[in-house]
Measured scan of single mutants.
Amino acid sequence: ITIHVNGVTYHFDNPEEAEKFAQKMAKTYQLKMEIHNGEFHME
């Protein structure tokens, strides 16, 4: 699972971890999250 946050790329093997991380980042930084081709993009 690949997550892009403001141009920084994070890779996770565990989908649950990826989702937790994505939600935490979105909440902490008030980010808008989109999913493209199974990759999370946040800005």
Rank of each mutant, 00 (worst) to 15 (best):
Q30I: 02
A22D: 01
H41V: 08
F40Q: 05
T9F: 08
N37D: 06
Q30M: 05
F12R: 00
I35G: 03
F40M: 10
E34M: 07
K24E: 13
Y10W: 07
F40C: 14
T2A: 07
H41F: 13
F12P: 00
A26G: 06
T2E: 05
N6D: 11
E39N: 04
K20S: 11
V5W: 06
V5M: 04
L31V: 13
Q30Y: 09
L31A: 09
M42D: 05
T2K: 12
H41T: 04
H4F: 07
M33I: 14
F12M: 01
E43D: 06
M42Q: 03
K24V: 12
K20H: 10
M25P: 00
Q23W: 10
V8L: 10
T28E: 15
Y10T: 02
N6L: 14
E39K: 04
T28D: 15
M42I: 06
K32I: 14
A26E: 13
H11A: 06
Q23G: 03
N6H: 13
T9D: 06
K27A: 11
E43T: 13
I3N: 00
H11C: 15
E16L: 09
V8C: 15
K32E: 15
I1H: 04
H36G: 02
K24N: 08
G38M: 05
F40Y: 11
N37L: 09
K32F: 13
T28V: 11
I1L: 07
M33N: 01
M25Q: 02
V5N: 01
I35E: 05
I1R: 04
E19I: 13
K20M: 09
K24R: 10
K27H: 05
G7H: 12
E43I: 15
I35F: 09
Q23M: 09
N37W: 11
A18D: 00
E34K: 05
F21G: 00
H4N: 04
K20E: 09
G38K: 04
I1W: 11
E19M: 13
D13L: 12
G7E: 06
E16S: 09
E16N: 10
F40H: 05
L31C: 15
T2G: 04
E34Y: 13
T28P: 00
H4G: 03
A22Y: 06
I1G: 01
E19S: 10
E19D: 10
D13S: 11
F12H: 00
F12C: 02
H41E: 04
L31H: 12
E43K: 13
N6Y: 14
D13R: 07
M33W: 09
E43F: 15
T2C: 12
E17S: 10
H4K: 06
H36S: 03
T9H: 13
Q30V: 02
F40N: 05
N6A: 12
E17K: 09
M33P: 01
E34Q: 04
E39R: 03
K27D: 14
I1V: 07
K27F: 08
Y29Q: 14
E17Q: 08
T28N: 13
F12I: 01
H41W: 13
K20N: 08
E34T: 11
E43R: 12
V8M: 10
Q30N: 08
H4D: 03
E16M: 10
E16W: 08
L31M: 07
Q30F: 09
K32H: 14
T2I: 11
F21H: 01
Q23N: 07
H4E: 04
A18V: 09
M25Y: 02
G38V: 02
A26C: 15
F21P: 00
E16C: 14
K32C: 15
I3R: 01
K20L: 11
P15R: 12
A18M: 04
A18E: 01
K20Q: 08
V5E: 01
N14Q: 07
P15K: 11
P15G: 08
P15D: 06
A26T: 03
A22K: 04
T2H: 13
L31W: 05
A18F: 07
A18C: 13
K20P: 01
I35Y: 09
Y10L: 11
E39W: 07
N14G: 07
K32M: 13
T2P: 04
F21K: 00
A26P: 01
H41P: 02
P15T: 11
E43M: 14
V5T: 02
D13Y: 11
T9Y: 05
N14A: 06
H4T: 06
L31Q: 10
A18T: 01
H36F: 09
N37P: 02
V5Y: 04
Q23F: 08
I3F: 05
T2Q: 07
N37I: 08
E16R: 08
M25N: 01
E19W: 14
V8Q: 08
F40S: 05
V8E: 10
T28K: 15
K32P: 11
H11Y: 09
N14I: 10
L31R: 01
M42L: 11
I3C: 14
H4W: 12
E19H: 11
H4L: 06
N6F: 15
K24S: 05
A22F: 04
F12L: 01
V8W: 13
H11L: 06
F12D: 00
Y10V: 06
H41G: 02
D13T: 11
K27M: 08
N6Q: 11
T2F: 13
Y10S: 00
Y29G: 15
Y29N: 15
G38T: 04
H41L: 05
I3V: 11
E19P: 00
K24W: 15
Q23I: 10
V8D: 10
N6I: 13
Q30T: 02
L31F: 07
T28S: 05
A22H: 03
N37E: 04
T9R: 12
G7D: 11
F12N: 00
Q23L: 10
Y29R: 11
G38C: 15
Q23D: 09
A22T: 04
I1Y: 08
G7I: 15
M33Y: 05
G7T: 09
E17P: 01
K24T: 06
G38L: 07
H11N: 07
K27G: 03
M33A: 02
H4M: 05
E43C: 15
K24H: 13
Y29K: 13
T9Q: 12
K20A: 08
T2R: 12
E16T: 09
T9S: 12
